[in-house]
């Protein structure tokens, strides 16, 4: 049994220590908001926070997450929507929406580090892939958040 702290709750799962955190979340803990896109750390659809840092959960063995705080899109905000989620609705960022939970998690982490990010910082840190091409609105929403 592994013990995990996910979204502020202690959860126990009986899985292999090498199972990527992504699959523990999706298939064993019933938290499907975190997505699979590539499995090789290339797309960011699986982005979650480990102790506040954005990580690509497809490439994090669950054992590494032990003793750390895991935050997924489902636990991003205790009360209603997180400011980033609100901005995403306000600026109509998502298209199909599949990449967007990862995109939101990456953005939350970015704004923690750089509350007023430059375009260069956005380019460097929000490297999540979006097949639908929502990038212009992602950037716009981030700048709007930085102002508010």
């Amino acid at each position: 049994m592994l013990e995990l702290n996910v979204n502020g709750r202690i959860m126990r799962v009986d899985v292999e220590p090498e199972m990527p955190l992504l699959w523990v979340l999706r298939d064993h803990l019933g938290l499907p908001g975190t997505k699979y896109g590539c499995g090789i750390s290339a797309c960011g659809a699986c982005t979650v926070h480990l102790d506040g840092e954005a990580v690509r959960s497809c490439s994090v063995p669950v054992s590494t997450a032990q003793g750390k705080k895991v935050t997924t899109i489902e636990g991003l905000s205790k009360h209603g929507l997180h400011a980033v989620q609100k901005a995403w609705i306000e600026h109509e960022v998502p298209q199909c929406g599949y990449c967007q939970t990862g995109m939101i998690m990456a953005t939350v982490a970015l704004l923690e580090k750089h509350p007023q990010p430059t375009d260069a910082q956005i380019d460097e840190i929000v490297t999540n892939l979006c097949r639908c091409g929502t990038y212009a609105r992602v950037r716009k929403a981030i700048h709007a958040l930085a102002k508010s």
């Binding site: 908001g33 997924t72 609705i89 998502p94 929406g97 967007q100």
Partner: peptide, 18 residues
């Protein structure tokens, strides 16, 4: 505003893989 967006930003299980 699009009707499907709030569920999508909340990570609700709306997709086939979910």
């Amino acid at each position: 505003h699009r009707l499907d967006i709030p569920d999508k930003v909340m990570g609700k299980p709306v997709f086939g893989v979910d």
